[in-house]
Every structure is written in C-alpha cells, then in structure tokens.
Design a protein around this nucleic acid. Sequence first.
DNA 1: TCCGTTGGTCAACACTTGTTGGCAACACTA
DNA 2: TAGTGTTGCCAACAAGTGTTGACCAACGGA
Lengths: 208, 208
Amino acid sequence: MRRQQLLAYECWPTLVGMTEKPPAPPRRSDATRTAILTAARERFGADGYDRATIRAIAKDAGIDPSMVMRYFGNKDGLFAAAVEVDLRFPDLAPVPREEVGRALVGHFLDLWEGNEQLRAVLRVGVTNQAGAERMQGIFREQLLPVARQVCPDPEQVPARAALCAAQLLGLALTRYVLQVPAAQALTREELVVWMGPTVQRYLTAPHP
Amino acid sequence: MRRQQLLAYECWPTLVGMTEKPPAPPRRSDATRTAILTAARERFGADGYDRATIRAIAKDAGIDPSMVMRYFGNKDGLFAAAVEVDLRFPDLAPVPREEVGRALVGHFLDLWEGNEQLRAVLRVGVTNQAGAERMQGIFREQLLPVARQVCPDPEQVPARAALCAAQLLGLALTRYVLQVPAAQALTREELVVWMGPTVQRYLTAPHP
DNA sequence: TCCGTTGGTCAACACTTGTTGGCAACACTA
DNA sequence: TAGTGTTGCCAACAAGTGTTGACCAACGGA
C-alpha cells in the first residue's frame, strides 16, 4: 500500500525519458531495464494485461520478479513505462487535399505492422477501464488534431474523427488482434485503395 | 482433471437448448441456471473473461460458486453457455441493391444497443485465443453468407466481407467497448448515413 | 582501505483464483 | 413411509498472483 519515494524516483527518468528533455544519466542497470521493457511489451501485446504476469515477464527478461517491482513500482507502472503510444501522424499540410485519406491509411498500416506496443494498448484498452481511458486520450490528442487540420467545419471535427477512428481501429482489430485470415490476406495496397476513400470521405465530404 | 459424466449430462440441454430441438425437460433448478447465465453475461460483458470471476458471478446470482461448477462444468463451459452469438442478419433478397449498406449498418446498431453478450464476445475475443477463434467463426458463418448474397464476384467475397467486418467491428469497438464519447455522441441516423455508403461500397462497388 | 550505493537473488507473505468433496434439506416415487 | 435423486451451502485445496523485505556481491568515490 505504502508508496516508496525512492522507487518513484528511480523509475521516473525511464517513464518519461523518451518524451521529455532531462538527460536521464546512464545507469549500470539500463540493460536490465530495457530487457524488462522489451519482455513486457511482448507479453502485454500477446496476452493482454491480466494474463501477462510479472513472473513471466521477469523470466523472459532473465531476472527476478522483484526487480520489476523495484524499477517500476508495480504492475501498472510497468505497463505505463512499457507502452507509450505515439501514432506519429504526419503533418498533412503538404499532402494534396484529395490524398489525405490514402496517406492516413497507409501511415496507419505501416505503424501497426509488427508493432507489439499498439497491440498491447488495444488489448488492454478493451479489457481495462484505465486502458480505455488511455485510448480515449490517444484519440483526443493525436487523431483530433489531424482531423482539425483537414475538416472544413470545426464543429463537425469530433464526429468525423470518430468515424475515422472506427474505420482504422476496426482494421487494426480484425487484422492484428483477432487476426481474421481474410483481413490478413488483403495487401497493403488493396487496403489503401479500399479504405483510403472511406477515410477521405469521413474527413472532407460534405455532411450527407 | 477428471470429467464428470453426470455433470456433462446436466448442463447439456442448457448449452444447446436454444439452437437444437430436444425439449429439455424443465428442472427445479432452472431459475438458478438462468440467474447464473444472466449474471455471467453481465460480468463477462463488463469485465472480460479474466476479471469476471466465478465467485463474483455466483454472488450476483445469489448462490454458491460451487453451483456454477456443478451446472456448467468449468469456467469455459459457463462462458460457452452464457454467450451465444446470433447476429441475425436479415435476408437481403427483398432489400433494394442500393440499400443493403444502410440496412446492414442499421441492423448492426440495433443489435448491439444494450447487448451485453456481444460486448462479452468482443472483449474475450481480444483477450483470449479461443475467443478470437470464436469471432472468426462468427465472421465465417454469419457475415460471409451475407456478403455472398450481395457481392458480384464470388472470388472477392472474403476480402469484401473483411472490409465490412473492419468497419462494423470498429464501430462496435469505439462506441460500445472503448466508449469514446465522440463515437457515442453520433446518433443512429448519422451513423447509418455515414457508414451505410461505406459498407455499400465495400460490398457492391467494382474493385477500385 | 573502508563504506555507502547500486544491482541482483531468495524466500516468503497475503490474497485470489478455479475447483472439489462432504453434508444437509428438500421433492418426488414406490 | 422409506428410498432416491436433486438442490444448495460450507469448508477446504492447490496453484498462481502481486508484492515485500532480508540478504549478498560488486562497484566507486573518500
């Protein structure tokens, strides 16, 4: 129950090191830390939050389970540290207006291909309330701005972004999580050609 | 480990009673059985497979956990008995060709609204390997036939069905599972008007 | 050289999980 | 009325969970 100051300090640089400035001085245990994070990403992505046990992750990383606790505080902290989602949507300004749909679908596919972190957030988002809120955050902070850049009417931005999210997450769900064979059989080009116009329409077409 | 013949027989009628013929003679415990199944559907739908514990389900049903085991063998058996998915896609023959997209989206929305079983399969399908296979079965046996009824080229049926599945499951995911506010804010009519043409195109438009 | 800090293991705690067997109360039939 | 199968509760088991603290080895600056 008791929060340990020392541990909180210890895992701090790793938690935000990738997105914030502080140089995060190198430590002798960095190899172990990254080993844990790598194993955690794999397990969370493959098994979801509940079935991914700390013991299994520690075993994959070749260390004792107690190390995970020392470095990341608890299981929640480990998940937060392991899974950091940046959809890296590109700036759409230079893209021709009628190409943004295809560009987004293509980017989304490239991003998901073989990415365990994304699978993990989706799995956990479906299972876990905190995970669902995290996904809502991603939607709000990463997809909404893109939609705002392209949509004609600012008032329609959330609705149009939600439609895009449904299409794109549905793709990720069927292809990468449920692994429906027919969804996996489609090539990247086919998906871009089919879904690109859909996303394009959701973003730019006049309200039907 | 040992399978108990008696118990297998006991839960048989309930397991398949809804889809098969045998009259399934009424038992004194039927009230308890349905109470368990109701509670199980709620818990599985709300919490997913792992977090929905037999103890919690039994408590909701107001009986002892051991009763769940007696009537349904084990947790897997309970899930199989509680969650039975019939998407009930209507016969599209009488529907005008250019209306099938809107009809499907509307039907899909009506079906999902307030349906805990569907939420449960999706949650479990994402978490669990067996659940994922179950969802693939639903795709194969319930969505593919519909697509076959409408698609021009039989060879393209799986691909087109997969595209529809991605769009529809993405809708279910964002609106009913992740509960993204922007996806919940859209009305039934808006969704039909926006997504209907998409599904329509995936099913009937010539390969782009 | 000493000594505090860091990296790591081990064994255990407290708890929850699915699951089982025993036993009492009831209902129905012969 | 005796007997038999059904319905239910209770207590417990074995396994697995996140988590903790004691303990040891090596490092690194004084």
